[in-house]
Structures are given as C-alpha cells and as structure tokens.
C-alpha cells in the first residue's frame, strides 16, 4: 500500500538535496515527480521577455538619475562652499530617491502584482509516491529541507 506526498518548494539547492536524500532512502526515480511552475505573466510575449531579462529591475531609473545628479553635484560642488565630495554625495542620494519615485509612479499599475511576486512563492511542486511505512521519514526530510508546505493523499 502506498501513498502520495506533495510538497511545494522554491528554486534552491535544498530542493536538489531533498531529492537526492529521498533517492538515498531507496525511493525510485519514477516515484518522484518534480513540476516546475511557469511564472505568472500577462501575455506570452511579456512572459518571454521577463524570463530573459533576469527579472525586471526596479533600480534602472535610480541608477541613471543618481548618476546624472551626482555628476552635476560634483561639477557645481567646485564652486560651492561644501566642495565636490559632499555635493556629489548629495546628488547621488537625491538622484536615487528621485529615480525610485519615478519608478514607483511609472509602474503603478503593476506594483501590487509585483509585491506579491516578490514574496516567497511556490515555484516547484514535488510529488513523491511512498510506501505507507515510510511516510513519517519522507515528510521529515521534506520539512527539514525547506518545503513551504506539504499535503498527502492515501
């Protein structure tokens, strides 16, 4: 008599370790199924570009405007009392702040969704078919190695 245990994971080295540990306990490869999820996206085109762009950076504008204001701070700092170093740093902080604000506004409609995506989410489902007497042991291995949640079906 066997049962199924299903667990959700993030992409992490722990997931690989879990699978190898299960195999060590003589659970056959055919009895382990890993199902990586495709991440949620609005359209296929966007899906592709997000897949490739290494995650949309929230920092692009911050870096660009930070650079421009830092440069201006450095240049005009030579004429001002506090000197180029302090004015350069002021420019940097102001630019990063402005850039972040711009980014927040330009992506306002996407913001809520993005917040949810940044939290810990299930990225892979792992289904293991095990004999009843091994249930405890397998559940212990899964939970010790970072499973976000587990469920079982007799």
């Amino acid at each position: 008599m066997s049962m199924h245990i299903i667990a959700s994971f993030e992409y992490s080295p722990f997931l690989e370790v879990t699978i190898k540990k299960l195999e060590e306990k003589e659970i056959k490869k055919e009895n382990i199924i890993a199902l990586p999820l495709d991440k949620r996206a609005e359209t296929k085109h966007v899906q592709e570009s997000i897949d490739l762009s290494a995650g949309k950076s929230r920092m692009d504008y911050a870096f660009i405007i930070g650079l421009i204001l830092m440069l201006l701070g450095t240049i005009y700092g030579f004429q001002l009392t506090w000197g180029p170093v302090i004015w350069g740093l002021i420019g940097l902080v102001a630019g990063v702040a402005v850039g972040m604000t711009v980014e927040q506004f330009s992506n306002r409609h996407r913001r809520g969704k993005r917040k949810r995506l940044n939290q810990k989410t299930a990225e892979v489902f792992l289904a293991v078919k095990v004999p009843l007497e091994q249930k405890e042991m397998v559940e212990k291995i899964l939970l010790e190695n970072g499973a976000l949640g587990i469920g079982h079906l007799n």
Partner: peptide
C-alpha cells in the same frame, strides 16, 4: 534538470 530527470513517472 528537474524537467529532464524527474518527470518520467
């Protein structure tokens, strides 16, 4: 890796 190795069952 997961798709190649652990979807045979």
């Amino acid at each position: 890796y997961l798709k190649d190795s652990y979807q045979n069952g």
